[in-house]
Nucleic acid binder design. Structure first.
Lengths: 149, 149
DNA sequence: TACGATTAAATCGTACACGATTTAAATAAA
DNA sequence: TTTATTTAAATCGTGTACGATTTAATCGTA
């Protein structure tokens, strides 16, 4: 029991620190492109599916408008994306990638991959960790949702 | 190779999201105590070893003074900790737990444990995930350090 | 048609988080 | 001893992140 409580502290700390470490690593790689880590995650999402609403994007990244709205505005100012209010439903705003985002996709992806490869994580390790992370993520999310109801 | 790059995106995303999920879960539990998640991590560190300098605390939590100074100030205002400038070396500031932090340790720890137990994570899963997270954390950190030199 | 409820974004206030700079104290060197 | 260097915190500017509120548009129903 006490053992279990001690583990709690260690796990939340491990996740917290690893997230911070990822943040620093990606920040150093992305800085030359004039991108932050969360902004890069937005690009990842849009490269996969372009032209989505704020709501969809927020759902994908698990971010509210309080975070997303100012972030997308900055990305628009920097020429990465474009906002377009829907004609059919003027409440909705679609986000589209700008040319710059398409042109630099290769270079950005390449630099990130190079940097990650320096860490010498093999694919097996990768997949195993991700499976367990997603598993934990699901359990945490399920609890959060049912508690909020 | 492309497989590998795709994994990169997925892993950094999984870590990002899991950290966010932890944040939300802990926030909901800690709110009634008037604590934030990072503030709780500070208490965890101080419950383990009280009376440390800002520098030591920053090293333990991997946080700079730009984050720590205002955070500790808030915790002082809320009666969790006390700052004391060292007599021997006036550059250093020691942080001590206040009575409130000692008194509420049990209640806080109990509530957190209760909430985590709802997630139904067994001890094996826990340890396995943590081992892998720490492993990744080390690799990321090593790279960051050597690159910074 | 009108009007209350719902929905999508934007806005606001608070709290991290980081790198860069500044301030002040201690230490080392000249 | 005076000065240069180093060190510990604090401060500053920018950018997330979140919950709560606000604004504006759409929808449902009488």
């Amino acid at each position: 029991m006490n053992d279990f409580r001690s583990l709690n502290g260690q796990l939340c700390f491990a996740v917290y620190e690893t997230a911070g470490e990822f943040n620093k690593l990606y920040t150093s790689v992305l800085q030359p492109f004039g991108l932050t880590y969360p902004q890069y995650l937005v690009l990842l999402a849009l490269w996969e599916k372009d032209g989505v609403t704020m709501k969809e994007l927020g759902a994908k990244l698990d971010l509210g408008t309080g975070t997303l709205t100012p972030m997308i505005s900055r990305m628009q100012e920097n020429g990465w994306v474009r906002k377009e209010r829907s004609k059919e439903d003027e409440r909705r705003v679609f986000i589209y990638l700008e040319e710059k985002a398409h042109q630099q996709q290769g270079a950005i992806t390449k630099r990130v991959a190079e940097e990650i490869e320096l860490c010498q994580i093999n694919a097996e390790e990768y997949k195993e960790l991700m499976t367990r992370l997603n598993d934990l993520h699901q359990k945490l999310k399920k609890r959060t949702n049912s508690a909020g109801a």
